[in-house]
Computed example of a mutant assay.
Amino acid sequence: MPLPVPDQLGDLPYAHLLTPHTGRLRSDERYDTALFDGGEYTDEAAGGATFLECAFSNVSLSGVRLRQGRFNEVWVQGSRLVACDLAESEWQDAAFLGGVLAGIAAHGSALRRVVFRQCKLESVNLRAATLRDVVFEDCVLRDVDFGDARLTEVTFLGSTLEEVRLRGARLSKTDLRGAVRLGLSDGHEGLRGALISSSQLFELAPQFAQALGITVKDR
């Protein structure tokens, strides 16, 4: 089941504490109950920054470097993240609603209790990341790389997967049955430990056969 996430900014439990943020983002800065509303941030360096009970509404981040950032109880709505560096970042009790993440480096990151709802993820590098209790709901995941990642209790409700890579991934209690489309470009062996439906199994059968070196040929 999807985790409960407010759809409106005013419904956040810390909404009354939010203070509008002005100025640039800074490395190793601590942002506590900050509201980022409608701003544009381009090519800024904010590595190691901490965001606690913050909200991002209709924000555009392009080329922003947030490597090793920490995001706890963060709400991101209607925002665009393009070509951002989120490698080795930590996300807990966070939500992305109706946004776009494109060309994102998030390898080695850790996501726990994170919801992506009605988002588009394209060319997102999640190699060697750790995802626990993460929900992708009504999302499009295109060219997303989960290579060598660990996925535990991850669900893909109503989501479309296209050219997703799972080579070397380790899945546990990960439920793919709700996916509208299960398009994998490699790493079919990485599905070990996942739950899939019988129709998905039938759809993936030719790719499983190829991965196992089995030739299927009717007389």
Rank of each mutant, 00 (worst) to 15 (best):
R170V: 09
L166P: 06
V124P: 05
R117G: 00
A110M: 01
R165F: 04
E122V: 14
G158R: 10
D148Y: 14
V144L: 08
E162F: 09
H107S: 14
L171W: 01
H107M: 05
N125H: 10
A129T: 13
L161P: 03
V154A: 05
F156M: 06
A106W: 02
R150A: 10
G147Q: 14
R112M: 01
R113A: 08
S123T: 11
R170A: 11
F116K: 00
R113E: 08
S159T: 15
L111M: 15
F156W: 06
E163S: 15
F136Q: 01
V115K: 03
A149G: 08
R132D: 12
R150G: 04
A128G: 00
E153W: 08
A128N: 04
D133C: 07
R170W: 00
E122A: 09
V144A: 11
L111R: 14
V124G: 07
L121K: 03
A149M: 04
D145S: 13
V114Y: 07
V140P: 00
L111P: 06
D148I: 08
H107Y: 13
S123H: 13
L157C: 11
R142K: 12
D133F: 04
D145H: 05
I104K: 05
E137S: 15
G168D: 10
D138M: 09
H107T: 02
T160N: 05
R167V: 14
R113C: 06
V115W: 01
R132W: 04
L131E: 02
R170T: 12
L126G: 09
A106E: 02
C119Y: 05
V124Q: 02
C139G: 06
L171C: 15
L141T: 05
S172F: 01
L131D: 00
F136A: 02
L171H: 01
R142P: 00
F156A: 05
C139D: 12
K173A: 14
C119G: 07
G147R: 15
S159W: 10
T155F: 01
R167M: 09
A106G: 01
G158N: 09
L131I: 09
V124Y: 08
E162Q: 12
C119A: 12
R132K: 13
S123N: 13
L161Q: 09
A149K: 07
C139I: 11
S159I: 13
R165N: 14
E153V: 07
C139H: 03
D148Q: 15
E163Q: 15
A128H: 06
L161G: 06
L131C: 08
R150M: 08
V164E: 04
G147C: 15
A110S: 12
G108N: 02
L141N: 11
A128L: 09
V114C: 08
